[in-house]
């Protein structure tokens, strides 16, 4: 699709005109160029460059999983707001989905054996679904508690059936996390690169994380997606949470830095918020995480926010003038499965 002239004009007026052709070709932008994107302080210009790169990478397609959230036995589970739906591990049959995710707050001293058992339990219940679980922080804690190497922990979890790692708001690819993902890739995992940032935090440190992710991505080729993740979630107050414009810039920078080396640039609607998540589809993102599976949707009420169901995600994608496509936890095109 040819691009509107005003977008080029906006990028040029922001002093970034020389980046347009490279971004449109999906070329890797060096750090110095990303610093210029930050310095221009124009989210529209940054988003226009990232969206041109996105268009070259994935055309009109936006992929999205349909996630069956599973409360693992033995793991503390705090009450969630009305936007979340989860199911007990023994009540997963017959629910259409494309991936499973273990949710809850594993204690820092969670035993590896229990983690392995959780994975096995979910995989036995729903062998038809890929399974996402355990952030890099959790994996590190499991290794520390077990006194085992990261490779050993990751190897056991993979053998038990874990397909890919999870993330948390603010997870960043620091040196340790980069090593952990590299180790996971060596164990055969494909993972999502989490790119955490805080309010007023799109600076050199964020570019360091992009550099680290790019190094791993180019070395292993096993990052499925890159995912910008603000520390504070949508519910955070304006004094502590990132600005919507910062979230747009983070998404754009991620797309411009990593779009050439990963399959997708993802947004997690439960972290940035449903409504902003839809907007980020125009800021370089082409994958939308957030659609939940439910045994039965509670009737909509007028007294609270509603869970994000697949119909709404598809609507958001179409509103962004894109085509939705279901994927599993490993970013493979698929149909929803009920596990029957």
């Amino acid at each position: 699709m040819s691009r509107e002239r005003i977008l080029r004009d906006t990028v040029t007026a922001a002093g970034l005109g020389d980046l347009w052709d490279r971004a449109s070709r999906g070329a890797r932008l060096p750090r110095a160029d990303l610093e210029r994107v930050i310095a221009c302080a124009n989210p529209l210009a940054a988003a226009a460059l990232a969206d041109a790169a996105r268009e070259q990478r994935s055309g009109v397609v936006v992929t999205h999983p349909w996630t069956l959230r599973v409360r693992a036995p033995g793991v503390p589970f705090a009450a969630e707001d009305g936007t979340r739906v989860s199911h007990a591990a023994d009540a997963l049959a017959g629910i259409p989905a494309t991936e499973a995710q273990i949710v809850g707050a594993p204690p820092a001293d969670l035993a590896l054996g229990l983690a392995v058992e959780m994975v096995r339990t979910v995989k036995v219940a729903r062998p038809d679904l890929t399974l996402r679980a355990f952030s890099s922080t959790c994996i590190q804690a499991l290794a520390d508690t077990a006194g085992a190497s990261l490779a050993a922990v990751l190897g056991e979890l993979r053998q038990a059936g874990l397909d890919t790692l999870d993330w948390e708001p603010g997870d960043g690819l620091d040196e340790h996390a980069a090593a952990l993902h590299r180790s996971a890739h060596e164990q055969g995992f494909e993972t999502t690169a989490p790119l955490g940032y805080r309010k007023d935090g799109l600076d050199g440190a964020f570019l360091d994380r992009l550099d680290a992710a790019r190094d791993v991505a180019e070395d292993t080729g096993r990052f499925l997606a890159a995912l910008p993740l603000p520390v504070c979630t949508e519910g955070a107050g304006p004094l502590t949470g990132s600005a919507g414009t910062e979230d747009a810039l983070a998404c754009a920078l991620t797309a411009l830095a990593l779009g050439h080396a990963v399959k997708r640039i993802a947004v997690d609607a439960h972290v940035v918020g449903h409504k902003l998540g839809a907007v980020l589809l125009s800021c370089g993102a082409d994958d939308f995480v957030g659609a939940q599976a439910a045994a039965a949707w509670a009737p909509p009420t007028s007294d609270g926010p509603r869970p994000l169901n697949p119909d709404r995600v598809r609507r958001y994608v179409i509103e962004a003038r894109r085509s939705p496509a279901l994927r599993d936890g490993l970013h493979r095109a698929c149909e929803a499965s009920s596990g029957a």
Partner: peptide, 12 residues
């Protein structure tokens, strides 16, 4: 109530 809410793109 059965209408699905629209997203940020539609608003902007």
């Amino acid at each position: 109530k059965n209408d699905e809410p629209r997203g940020g793109s539609e608003y902007l």
